[in-house]
Design a protein around this nucleic acid. Structure first.
Length: 484
RNA sequence: GCCGCCUUAGCUCAGUUGGUUAGAGCGCUAGAUUGUGGAUCUAGAGGUCCCCGGUUCAAAUCUGGGAGGCGGUACCA
């Protein structure tokens, strides 16, 4: 074959913000989703899968060519020129599903869902444009018991995944508190919508910037280390003090303030329900600094946070922070039906949580690969394939070498696949009705001690011959030994 | 979006004041070893030096613009 003109070669590259997931990580992922599913089902949630693509208006987004071009959402037009979008979370599709099937669903409707979601944003460290979420939602229940249940579900799920009690906390607040605060600070009304948003954003940054940084953001603004200036909410000093004061006071002390009353009552009731079920402050804690998304939450909001610190590959300490969150959103279904349907939910950032767990979890040994049957003699391929099939039928992962290289390359291949052993049958063995089994794991240990090449050649460590009839039994024994 | 750093082989990176045919290590392929993983040695394959323009006898190197990557920040349903 002649050389391809290099100027026409495409570059083999991943799309920005996307990634490949390989065998070891996929195994971990399946493991995780299995455990999460178990907890969600135990709580009575029913599985539901909706498509990755929805009509753009059903997701509640502006069309890409209108005033917010492609604002965070991947969108395109189908052949009828209808705008479609990749889902950016699992809640918007749920709202569509509930609205569409309202008359048939049991109320309250409780479902769980998991899958990839897509965001057309600039990716950052640990942030991708495709990632997996695992959600549970209760639709049609307005009592705070449904919210309390979300908190307990979050705690149970983290523990099922191996996060120790004390290494995480579920923080709960209520959007009603912040609404009350803003109203008390005189930021009511349409004309203050932008400033309310800025205040919420500032409060959300408390854990990272501290009281000082938040104060700056509430006032004129703040300049960060990279020299970028973030415009503040431009509150008066008195208003700033009021907000800061709220953040520093315990929630219960606001109980008599009419602006906060309804929110505080909710939270105290929620806390009581959780405590009665055995979920104390070390797991589920009221914390008025929790903000969560800005648009649709209307009541209690919760955030699942990992509290331990780990070192990354460079030895720098990393805090993972939030690995999931949720809250009450009472207006989402109403978009479609006009009927107000109360709902509350919880969502786990699976990919993010997995990254965190892989840093605390003990590094598992690489899983064993398949047994590799070497092709010593191309004329005997049918025999090798038959052996391979016999191993497979006995429940052993096995494959015949399918490449075209010689024995040395075949050994290297098996090594790279992390095979427990290879099966060798050349003319010598065949004449005697035998096969040679070479234990690659034992062999590697033996080889470490050998210095001289000649010795290495002659030693042929960790291999033995058995009669063809005993092949399966011997391989079984060998694998069992290495799995232990 | 804003700020900073970076871009040379599949990967990690050298490349002198601008000067012949752009290098190394790792990885890959093969041989030394009719049929044995490691180590060692040998050979081979692999390059639009990110792109476009400018300066120059001469640009991977200097210069202008652009693209891409990384990090911070902003946004985050």
């Amino acid at each position: 074959m002649s050389k391809v003109n290099t100027s026409t070669r495409p570059e083999a590259r991943l799309a920005k913000g996307f990634r490949d997931i390989e065998a070891a990580e996929l195994r971990g992922l399946n493991d995780m989703t299995g455990k999460i599913r178990e907890v969600y089902e135990r709580y009575g949630f029913e599985a539901l899968e909706t498509p990755a693509i929805e009509y753009t208006d059903a997701l509640g987004k502006f069309l890409p060519d209108q005033d917010r071009p492609n604002a965070g959402v991947f969108s395109f037009q189908d052949e009828d020129e209808q705008w479609m979008s990749l889902r950016y979370d699992l809640t918007a599709p749920l709202a569509r599903y509930v609205a569409q099937n309202f008359q048939f669903l049991p109320k309250p409707f409780r479902r769980y869902a998991f899958g990839n979601v897509y965001r057309n944003e600039k990716p950052g460290p640990g942030r991708f444009r495709q990632f997996m979420q695992f959600d549970a939602d209760t639709v049609g229940a307005e009592g705070v018991a449904a919210d309390a249940e979300m908190c307990m579900l979050a705690a149970d799920t983290l523990e099922a995944l191996g996060v120790k009690r004390g290494d995480y906390v579920i923080k709960v607040s209520s959007r009603k508190l912040l609404d009350g605060l803003l109203s008390a600070a005189g930021l009511d009304g349409e004309e203050n919508a932008g400033r309310r948003l800025t205040v919420l954003r500032a409060v959300d940054k408390l854990d990272r910037l501290g009281i000082e940084g938040v104060s700056q953001l509430l006032g004129k603004g703040r300049k960060d280390e990279s020299g970028d200036f973030t415009k503040g909410a431009d509150l008066t000093p008195a208003q700033t003090m009021e907000v800061i004061g709220f953040l520093e006071r315990p929630i219960a002390s606001n109980a008599d303030n009419p602006a906060f009353k309804s929110g505080v009552d909710d939270l105290l009731k929620l806390k009581e329900i959780c405590a009665a079920a055995g979920y104390e402050e070390n797991r589920i804690r009221l914390d008025q600094t929790v903000v969560r998304g800005l648009e649709y939450y209307t009541g209690p909001v919760l955030e699942a946070e990992l509290t331990f610190e780990v070192k990354d590959d460079d030895g720098k300490p990393v805090r993972f922070g939030s690995v999931g969150g949720g809250g009450r959103y009472d207006d989402l279904v109403a978009r479609f039906t006009g009927e107000k349907v109360p709902a509350t939910g919880f969502s786990i950032g699976v990919s993010r949580l997995q990254a965190a767990l892989s840093l605390i979890g003990d590094k598992k040994a690489k899983a064993l690969g398949p047994v590799v049957v070497l092709v010593m003699d191309k004329a005997e391929i049918a025999t090798y394939q038959k052996m391979t099939q016999a191993l497979r039928n006995a429940g052993i992962r096995a494959e015949m070498y399918l490449g075209s290289s010689g024995m040395k390359a075949q050994m290297k291949y098996a090594d790279k696949r992390n095979s427990p052993c290879v099966i060798i049958q050349g003319s010598d063995e065949r004449a005697k009705g035998e096969v040679t089994i070479k234990d690659l794991i034992e062999g590697a240990k033996a080889a470490a001690a050998i210095k001289d090449n000649k010795e290495w050649k002659e030693a042929r460590p960790a291999q033995f011959s058995v009669s063809e009839a005993n092949l399966i039994q011997e391989v079984h024994k060998l694998i069992k030994r290495h799995e232990a």
